[in-house]
C-alpha cells in the first residue's frame, strides 16, 4: 500500500519536475535580454531539478544512491546562485545594460517608499 503511494508520488514529482525543466528552457529562448534569461534558467535549476531529483530519491528508498542524489541537490542549491550572481555581475561590469521598465537603483533604501500600492 505504502509502496504504491510512494511510487505514485515519485512519478508525479518526476513528471512535474520535467514540466518545469522544459518551461525554464522555453524561457531561456523566449526572454528578451540576458538578465531575464537568468531568471528563466533558475526555474530549471531550482524547482525543475529539485522535483526531478526528489522523485528519484523517493524511488531509490534509503540507500547510498539517495545520499548521492541529496548531495547533487545540495550542490545545485548552494552553487547555482553563485554561478548566476557571478554571471550577472560580470555582465553588468562589462557594460551590458539590462532592459528595464523601472530603475529604482537610486532610491534611498529603507526610506519607507516600499509600502506604496502595486
Amino acid at each position: 500500500m505504502i509502496a504504491i503511494l510512494i511510487e505514485w508520488a515519485s512519478g508525479a514529482m518526476i513528471i512535474t519536475g520535467s514540466i518545469f525543466i522544459v518551461i525554464g528552457a522555453i524561457g531561456l529562448v523566449r526572454m528578451p535580454d540576458l538578465y531575464t534569461r537568468i531568471h528563466a534558467a533558475s526555474v530549471t535549476d531550482t524547482l525543475g531539478a529539485g522535483l526531478l531529483l526528489g522523485g528519484l530519491m523517493l524511488q531509490s528508498g534509503l540507500s547510498l544512491v539517495t545520499l548521492k542524489l541529496a548531495f547533487l541537490l545540495g550542490l545545485f542549491f548552494f552553487m547555482g546562485p553563485v554561478a548566476s550572481h557571478a554571471l550577472a555581475q560580470a555582465a553588468l561590469q562589462e557594460g551590458i545594460e539590462p532592459l528595464l521598465r523601472e530603475d529604482r537603483r537610486h532610491r534611498e533604501a529603507g526610506s519607507g517608499e516600499s509600502g506604496e500600492a502595486r
Partner: peptide
C-alpha cells in the same frame, strides 16, 4: 518559481524588469 513559470508560458510575456537596491 510558479510565478515565473506562469510569466514564461503567458503568450504576452508580461515582464516588467526592475532594478533596485
Amino acid at each position: 518559481a510558479w510565478t515565473v513559470s506562469k510569466i514564461i508560458m503567458n503568450p504576452r510575456l508580461p515582464i516588467s524588469p526592475t532594478m533596485t537596491v
